[in-house]
Design a protein around this nucleic acid. Structure first.
Lengths: 153, 153
DNA sequence: ACTAATTGGACCGAAACAGTACTGTTTCAT
DNA sequence: ATGAAACAGTACTGTTTCGGTCCAATTAGT
């Protein structure tokens, strides 16, 4: 199945939530806010930090913040940060395509790759934000009957 | 890396070549014509047959032929036949998304999925045929160099 | 009916991925 | 200064998926 990795999925969720916070946010907080397991959140954020998608602040009172506003981060950027380059064919660069000389489809794949990249670049994290619950913690703290699985603050 | 499986890559190559043949063609012939290992060609064709992309003729003098002309077979069709549905998120159908209720991004992923599907549906195998060597045996020395992929921003 | 050719389906090993844990480094608060 | 909090990097493990191979079912031709 042509699907992106779970990590990328988590990354998008975490980034959108991060974009709704003020200042820096820690992994544990983001974990509780999104429902994603803490080690996984940490891993994702670490990767995103090395790729420059988020800025990290080390030490106590540290955390992460977006390097750019949500509107300027495309889905393609996130995918590339986590999964690496978007290249649908193994042929493309230094690939071990045995039939390279015979298949003769090399240039045509670029057509497909470009189409994919364009599609993914046209969607930003801000587009993903719509209809998103503002914050799980707020919902929990609200005077509703909604129960909180964990009560750490 | 967001990439489609090698099988899908092979499938496209095999299908394009198959569309350039008359009557039915056997796996061994297609293997020699494309340079793809015979067992792999056989496997790909088998899958494509079950999905109705190609029509199979069993027994002696059997072989495969396209179910539709190249112009009517999109890349999306091939990918779905080999790799299964194109759904970038695991959430989508019957998924085991733990954070479904909290991430709140479910509907937005459909936006991404649609974009991808549209992009892939707009490209047909006929588009991939251009610049393709007619047959390996005839034009053995076709260089078919392709451009190195651009460095990702 | 028999044989050869060809597809159909099942099986297995290898590689990639997700997830977890541990250790080290940096920084704030006391 | 000292301790605690939080990120950084590395390594390990279990699971899944993918790529490839082998054997059984089917059919045309003689």
């Amino acid at each position: 199945m042509l699907k992106l990795s779970k990590l990328t999925d988590y990354a998008v969720v975490a980034l959108v939530r991060l974009g709704q916070k003020e200042g820096v946010t820690t992994s544990p907080v983001l974990s509780r806010s999104t429902g994603i397991p803490e080690p996984t959140v940490a891993k994702v954020l670490k990767i995103l930090a090395t790729q420059g998608v988020v800025i990290s602040q080390r030490g106590a009172r540290g955390g992460y913040r977006l390097a750019s506003p949500l509107e300027e981060i495309s889905i393609a950027t996130v995918i590339q940060a986590i999964d690496g380059p978007i290249s649908l064919t193994t042929c493309v660069d230094g690939g071990d395509c045995d039939a390279r000389s015979t298949c003769g489809l090399g240039e045509q794949w670029d057509l497909v790759n470009s189409a994919i990249r364009n599609a993914l670049s046209s969607i930003t994290l801000a587009d993903m934000k719509n209809h998103t619950v503002t914050d799980r913690l707020e919902t929990m703290n609200a005077p509703t009957m909604f129960i909180a699985p964990e009560a750490t603050a």
